[in-house]
C-alpha cells in the first residue's frame, strides 16, 4: 500500500529520492523561500503531465550546479562536459522526479502519462496564479527549484 502524500510532501520526497539516488545529491528546503535564481545563472526544463490530469512540472537550477552534476555523472572535468550532456541530465532528473511525484500522489496502481521533458529556451515563463513552488538547496547551498503548474494538477492536493 502506497501512502498517499499531500502535494508538497509528494514532490519533496520525489526530488530528494531522485537526486540522492541518481546524482548523490542531498537536498533540503532553501533557508530563504523568497530566493529567486538570477536569470543569467538559470537553466531549466519543462515536462507536461498528460493524464489523468493536465499540468506542467518545471525543474530549474543554476548552470553551475548542473555543470557539477554532469561532471560527476560522466566522471569528467567541468571543462570537458558538453551542453548536450548537461541538457540530458536535467531532462532525466525532471522525468524521474515527475514520475515519482505522480506515483506518490495518485492512488495505488493508477496509471499516468508524462510528456517528454524539454530543455527550456529563453526567459523563464511567468507562472500561472496558483502554481506551487518547491525552493530547495544542496548542502553547498546551490539553489534548485521545482514548480507544479496548472489548476487540475495542483488540485490533486485536495
Amino acid at each position: 500500500m502506497i501512502e498517499h502524500k499531500p502535494l508538497y510532501q509528494a514532490m519533496k520526497q520525489a526530488a530528494s529520492n531522485t537526486l540522492e539516488n541518481m546524482v548523490f545529491l542531498e537536498v533540503m528546503e532553501h533557508y530563504d523561500q523568497s530566493y529567486e535564481i538570477p536569470p543569467e545563472d538559470l537553466t531549466w526544463a519543462s515536462l507536461l503531465i498528460q493524464d489523468p490530469v493536465q499540468g506542467e512540472i518545471r525543474l530549474a537550477m543554476t548552470n553551475e550546479l548542473l555543470k557539477k552534476l554532469t561532471a560527476a555523472v560522466f566522471s569528467l572535468d567541468e571543462e570537458e562536459i558538453t551542453q548536450a550532456q548537461m541538457d540530458d541530465i536535467l531532462q532525466e532528473l525532471l522525468n524521474t522526479i515527475a514520475g515519482l511525484f505522480m506515483t506518490n500522489l495518485l492512488a495505488d496502481n493508477q496509471t499516468f502519462q508524462l510528456g517528454l521533458p524539454e530543455h527550456g529556451e529563453g526567459e523563464f515563463p511567468e507562472l500561472e496564479p496558483g502554481s506551487v513552488a518547491w525552493k530547495l538547496m544542496t548542502a553547498d547551498e546551490d539553489p534548485l527549484q521545482i514548480f507544479a503548474i496548472g489548476a487540475p494538477l495542483v488540485a490533486l492536493n485536495d
Binding site: 515527475a98 496509471t111 499516468f112 508524462l114
Partner: peptide
C-alpha cells in the same frame, strides 16, 4: 521505467 502502471 518511470511509469509504474501495472498494464505496461
Amino acid at each position: 521505467s518511470t511509469e509504474t502502471g501495472a498494464d505496461i
